[in-house]
Nucleic acid binder design. Structure first.
Lengths: 141, 141
DNA sequence: TTTTTTACTTGCAATTTGCAAGTAATTCAC
DNA sequence: GTGAATTACTTGCAAATTGCAAGTAAAAAA
């Protein structure tokens, strides 16, 4: 597995050491906003990530403690990915990227979600973080 | 020059099409927080960007309308880079990355700046955006 | 028992990155 | 005025990464 080298002690730089590529944050987007949590679901997203890249990024996210991987309760051949607190803590980054993208690109997004994020960003961030947190709760522990 | 292909209409994805690499946002960081504005100054940053990558990213940033390049008033052989409004609008992304980095990595940063960003993030963002905007004002137009 | 689902792995060509060295127009020092 | 810096890149090339297509393997479904 590719090791992550820290280029400097600048916090922007160290964040980009982990998140600075075209795919990692899209997987987290799918987990937070897409209601997705399995390898097969991530593959179906509009950006068409290659299977080897997806496997690599999921392994990296796990290595970095951003996601956990558990066997699905209904099928032994299925794995469910959930965000850890470290992963959930990237939601403000996702939202900042989303808002910049809507202001400076040709994009399409659910108007309700956009309105919520534009008018009450902090509340919306907290809500999506809470939702992500709830998903990690096991139904019958 | 490398063209940027839009992978989908998702605003997170379109933002990452432009900003999703390890160097672009570091150049903007230098412009916003580092008081830097020339090729030579960007080269001196702690992360040691390669000269060809820097030239490539600066050209891309210019192509995307995020920075402008003007001849320095004192030297014809020197160029000054300034952020456009589109570039200044990435400051919330930078701040989100900075805060995540401080929470989940071994980083070092000026305690005054960190405190300002942690306690009054919105005011701090507005302040750095205003500072960046002022830099684009020509002394004697 | 055969087929399908699910999650990957492998091989390989193409692209991107990173390092080192080279170029070219100014500007500085004397 | 001339030779040495400065400033901003460009070029060549090896190494690493990406992306595509095909293959594998365990479990589940038919």
């Amino acid at each position: 597995m590719k090791e992550v080298k820290q280029r400097s002690t600048c916090p922007v730089s160290t964040s980009l050491d982990v998140l600075g590529d075209k795919w990692t944050l899209l997987i987290i987007r799918d987990l937070v906003f897409g209601g997705k949590s399995t390898y097969g679901q991530f593959l179906q997203s509009a950006e068409k990530i290659a299977t080897n890249i997806l496997a690599d990024r999921l392994a990296l996210l796990e290595t970095h403690g951003m996601v956990t991987k558990v066997v699905a309760s209904d099928k032994k051949s299925k794995f469910i990915y959930h965000l850890t607190e470290k992963g959930i803590d990237t939601v403000p980054i996702l939202v900042a990227l989303l808002l910049w993208g809507t202001r400076h690109g040709s994009t399409a997004i659910d108007p309700g979600l956009l309105n919520e994020l534009q008018t009450e960003p902090d509340a919306a961030i907290a809500r999506y973080q809470r939702l992500a947190r709830e998903k990690t709760q096991v139904p019958f522990p």
